[in-house]
Design a protein around this nucleic acid. Structure first.
Lengths: 252, 252
DNA sequence: CGGGCAATTGAAATACATCAAGGCGTGTGG
DNA sequence: CCACACGCCTTGATGTATTTCAATTGCCCG
């Protein structure tokens, strides 16, 4: 019946995400041979593979804490997570939403300290590789280093873009740009069809990512809906007027 | 007479900064033997050195533009610069102030595209190394890669911290934290003495870095002065009450 | 049936922007 | 040497985007 790769979430908190090894750096780097049951047709076998531990975490659970030390480098295989920083008064900033195929933190490749916490938004499945294994691989293949540098650089650009948005853009723009950037990242993984994408975020997630309050996010989203720009229902988002929505995001 | 390493700026726009090869990654990485006349006593000769081109840029001039391509990797030897992004409506976000001893952009080590523009604040002296030279060095010495990774990671952390500050902190906090972070970075280079440091920033620089307007920056700084927290005069800043100032920066 | 999370909506408060005017120091051209 | 413009900072009045507070609803779940 349901031919879309977007799965409706029957009960919030249950694995709603499609797997995407296609865009995963671990797959691209040739260190992961894909999830045991990832038979979505797009999968191609890699040349090498490293031993990995597989984990499944229910929605809303913290995966890693800010100050933890790790000797592993985790990759998201399935589900959405958020990379967050929490201030002492409890307010949070989400630095990045982690999607299937994202490395949790490139800096873990070189040191044991992650600078931020990671929380599961939906149920999350991830794979961890030993840092030492990965490092050994890097020393053997210098081209890998360039690939890693690209991934790392992309992450730095995301952080910079976020800073610009938070510093210089209005609430409307910030929210529209967040949605558009998620759409682009999902599209690159083949997870957008017909302007519709999975959208498991609560409004407080959007608020924490855009430096706003959940109340204000509600008002802005209502306004977007009233203007016929987007529709959000059943944990999925459809862009009804992509051109106009793009304009809202790019006002300045 | 003047025994402080803080030089007063007799005419705005003329080289006001102390050189600091001490904390420079180029020096640390052993690729730079220091400025020809950097005889400040802290200098120790390196093991290796690469050919470098030396440049001097007057204050207020753009050094690199957002979309330029480069086959060189520049390091700041002297003076302050700002790494900025400009939106189409002309508003700017300063992502980072570049101080003596800073690499302009670590991403230039691996690709020709810099994601942001760089503008001289004071007169700036910098050295450029050929990317190919540096890369060749990296392939020969794997320990260098780890050092580069550390520098790179620090830069990513700065971008993330900026995003948190812009997203979740008040104007008072943002400005106080900017000043404190500059103090810490200068102190690491031995450029702070007796709670006094060089401070060549105009208020519009502070505004562009904190996502505020110059008018509001003026009001906040006046308030800081009225409260006896800091004093800014003659392009230099003194922290009169460091403990209380720290508290302002860490309210949440 | 009760309780908790998520979303909505309106009213009031506030932090910051915008607008406007004036002062001060500095370089410049007559 | 003076007049003047210009960049930089300051200050006050006013406007507005966003927060805070509060009440209400629906919904899922125990």
């Amino acid at each position: 019946m349901n031919v879309l790769p977007i799965l409706k979430e029957p009960h919030p908190g249950r694995a709603p995400c499609i797997r995407s090894c296609a865009a995963c750096p671990a797959h691209d780097l040739g260190i992961c041979h894909g999830l045991s049951d990832a038979g979505n047709g797009r999968y191609t076998p890699p040349q090498v593979s490293l031993p990995a531990s597989e984990h499944t975490i229910p929605a809303r659970r913290v995966i890693f804490r800010q100050r933890d030390l790790h000797d592993v480098v985790p990759f998201i295989c399935q589900g959405w997570a958020a990379s967050t920083i929490t201030l002492s008064d409890g307010s949070r900033q989400i630095l990045l939403f982690l999607l299937p195929g994202d490395i949790v933190s490139p800096s873990l490749l070189f040191g044991p300290t992650a600078s931020c916490s990671v929380e599961a938004i939906t149920e999350v499945q991830y794979r961890s590789f030993k840092r030492d294994d990965l490092k050994a691989l890097l020393t053997r293949d210098l081209e890998l280093i360039e690939k890693v540098a690209r991934v790392w650089n992309e992450r730095k650009l995301q952080a910079q873009q976020l800073a610009v948005d938070l510093g210089r853009r209005t609430a409307d723009e910030r929210i529209a740009r967040l949605i558009l950037s998620l759409r682009d990242r999902l599209a690159a993984r083949g997870l957008v069809q017909d302007q519709t994408m999975e959208f498991p975020l609560r409004q407080h997630h959007v608020a924490d990512a855009t430096g706003l309050t959940a109340v204000h996010v509600s008002k802005v989203l209502s306004d977007f809906r009233r203007r016929g720009l987007i529709d959000i229902s059943d944990r999925s988002l459809t862009m009804l007027n992509p051109a106009e929505f793009q304009r809202v995001a790019t006002m300045r």
